[in-house]
């Protein structure tokens, strides 16, 4: 008969006691609401007019795909992600490389690039609403009166062709700084020895970039990429502040439509279903991205 070590048992209990407060808090404020929301997503529940949620299986999820506004929101969110994500990665990487190369005035560049991080997106939204204004905006003013390109003037937020791209521009302005920080930390982690050895071997700058820097940034790519995907799919703030989904439904995105269903139409069941669908979408795309960047074995 194997005798249990009482010290091990005590350690087990003590370690659980240490994590118990965190587990309880997470359970109460994260897990319980999450499970409760998941249950509601499978229920018919208008919280004003229904007594209580009534389980209706997959009906809410099926209804989503019969709702033209949901389909538009889905399409718009995918468009936002497809345009935002590569631009975000490319700009963040290029600027991180630039800042890492110790150019003159680096400190000023760093401050300028990182400043948008501390500006709340809602505030940035108001600021850009004015910048993009058709009649009073500085962008149209610059195009017409400084650059003398009046033909390029647009009703940036009021035109279905340009509204979503304007929102993407705001998203890039806001989030690229954070991507730069993550890439910079990856760049700093690459040992200078590798570059010195490469220099001895006569490797040029492009070869440095493609054979040393980028392969060594795979971890950062994964982190920045997943973060970027999540920011793109959960786009909400600037849309609410700047266009509220308009004109028409040209900038309606999934989270905005979830909010509308939950807190404007009071249809919690549908609202939760959209929220879980959006979360699932973010997870799937992130997993695919992670899989694509999987390090080669051997």
């Amino acid at each position: 008969m194997v005798k249990r070590d009482p010290r091990k048992r005590n350690n087990f209990i003590v370690s659980w006691l240490f994590v118990l407060p965190a587990v309880l808090l997470m359970g109460a404020f994260l897990l319980y609401p999450l499970l409760s929301a998941l249950r509601i997503s499978f229920s018919e529940y208008n919280f004003v007019y229904s007594e209580k949620p009534v389980f209706n299986g997959l009906t809410n999820y099926i209804k989503l795909f019969q709702d033209p506004h949901f389909l538009v929101a889905f399409k718009n969110t995918i468009y936002y992600t497809l345009v935002f994500f590569p631009l975000f990665m490319l700009i963040a990487l290029c600027l991180a490389l630039l800042l890492n190369s110790k150019v003159k005035g680096n400190g000023i560049f760093q401050t300028a690039i990182l400043l948008p991080i501390v500006v709340p997106l809602s505030l940035a939204g108001i600021m850009f609403t004015w910048i993009f204004s058709q009649d009073f905006g500085i962008l149209n003013h610059l195009l017409a009166n400084v650059l003398h390109l009046p033909n390029l003037q647009r009703f940036w937020l009021g035109d279905t062709q340009t509204a979503m791209n304007s929102l993407i521009a705001v998203g890039l302005w806001k989030y690229t700084g954070f991507g730069i920080i993550l890439f910079l930390s990856g760049l700093k982690a690459i040992s200078s020895d590798i570059y010195e050895v490469a220099k001895v071997d006569g490797v040029n700058s492009w070869q440095n970039l493609f054979y040393i820097t980028l392969p060594n940034l795979k971890g950062s790519f994964s982190l920045v990429g997943i973060w970027g995907i999540i920011q793109a799919i959960k786009v909400y703030d600037q849309v609410v502040v700047m266009t509220n989904g308009g004109p028409g439904t040209s900038t309606l995105v999934l989270y905005l439509y979830a909010w509308k269903n939950a807190f404007s139409f009071f249809n919690m069941g549908i609202g939760e279903a959209i929220a879980f669908f959006t979360a699932a979408l973010a997870i799937i795309i992130s997993v695919v991205f992670k899989f694509v960047l999987k390090p080669e074995k051997g």
């Binding site: 506004h69 035109d159 028409g248 439904t249 509308k260």
Partner: peptide
């Protein structure tokens, strides 16, 4: 009961017309 939904539909459709 569905006033907010009607607002949403009208806004989207009339905006599309104005564009």
């Amino acid at each position: 009961v569905d006033h907010a939904k009607m607002v949403d539909i009208m806004t989207a459709e009339i905006h599309n017309m104005l564009k």
